[in-house]
Design a protein around this nucleic acid. Sequence first.
RNA 1: GGUCCCUUCGUCUAUCGGUUAGGACAUCAGAUUUUCAAUCUGGGGAGAGGGGUUCGACUCCCCUAGGGACUGCCA
Length: 473
Amino acid sequence: MPSPSTPSPVVTRIAPSPTGSMHIGNARAALFNWLYAKHTGGTFLLRVEDTDRERSTEESVQVIVDSLTWLGLEWDGEPVFQFVRAPLHKAAVQRLIEGGNAYRCYMTTEEADAVKEQSRAEGHALRSPWRDREPGASEEGKPHVIRFRTPNDGDTVVQDLVRDTVRFPNKDIEDFVLMRTDGTVIYNLAVTVDDHDMGITHVIRGEEHLSNGGRQTLLYNALGWPVPIFAHLPLILSKTGGKLSKRDGAQSVGEFREMGYLPEAIRNYLAKLGWGHGDDELFTDAEAIAWFDVKDVVKGGAKLDFDKLNHVNNYHMRRADNARLADLVLPILRERGVTLPADAQERLVLVIPLVKEGAKTLLELADLSLYALKARPLVLDEKTLGHLNDETRERFARLLEVLRTANDWTPDGLQATLKIFAESEGVGLGKIGPALRGVLSGGAPAPDLGSALTALGREESLGRIDDALSQVR
RNA sequence: GGUCCCUUCGUCUAUCGGUUAGGACAUCAGAUUUUCAAUCUGGGGAGAGGGGUUCGACUCCCCUAGGGACUGCCA
């Protein structure tokens, strides 16, 4: 429900640049924009910031689309591509020039560096000499950039939902470039024009843009447009508190997917990172949407904690549909080069519910399910072979008969059957368990015996035991 | 260097002037035990430092320290 002061309807956006992978920090910005739009009944838009022609690629656009889709953060309408809006951007620059808010600057990069140095020495940010000089005849047709004429006095105030009032002295904001020598526009200008044209009411983005909030506020004012509501999110940091890097395990959405995390778990975890709802740790999308408010976002940067992510992922895997999990585990197994039986999918659906409590990721789920997919006869490990002495073999022959006629083929039922069998043999379960486990799994991880047998089914279980008995030592 | 932002257990966070500073993950101990887990019970663990304001500060103000962002003809 929107609070009384919230303009309605809310329009948010995620505006990634297609220059590589989709960073997890960007994914969280997308999530918060999406949550806020859903929470207020507004819309969530996607804009691809591809004004940097050198670095933008088609493949990266696809990565953005795939990442957002996988994360389940569907945007409304068609994506807006920034580069095709260039004529609108140029028109805005023209207006700024005509209004005296921007000017042509003929400095070379080297000259600009020198002037910047001098400006700093004088205690303010860069001011080009061209801001107060009319280009003469000799400048006709010469390469130049367009710079914003930042006021020398006063402060620019950014009202931020997360950080309250942030004040930037204008003297410290440089005459930033709006248009390059080649006539293409730069980030701050394009963002401002596009956010305005797209009717964005709330700009929710990473803290690295906080100072851009100042520059953009200047642009909104100069263009005579209402300033949207800003909200600058804290950064996601590495374990050591610095920038997230490859060493930290993963930084892109694709990598988290590869590591076997469920999208709903990523949503849950990312939502908790920098935002919270009392003591609630594990929740559904519906709950997050109902509870989310940008005002409740914390200010401090947060370190990515894989232990916690694992816990959240485990929780969501427990709740996930087993057929879906089987579909996700199958390609992981294939990629490992595992030879899969024809009924792999069916077998997985039976094992997964029995082992998923112990799995933190889909990768681990694959590990724990693997035993059930092995082809007979299993190759037994040394440890298991060691258990298979004559006494055990004779005992297993008797066990085979018991299992053949066991009528309660369920985890609990089989557990009970095994216990009774052990008693009738006059030994403890410890005398039977390890060997039986090895025979059934071939040394691979497997759940408790009752569950292991249940997942395999009677035929497969008896077959595996039988194989072991006939195996030559 | 300049501007801006941030700072509660190892980590993510709750607290919105008065609490034994709560929860979760991790960790440790115990229980269970047929592997790995899972599960159950219990334990340890925090307001960066210094000044104020106040009857009373984690909470409000100032300073210091530490961390971070920006300071591009990248976004």
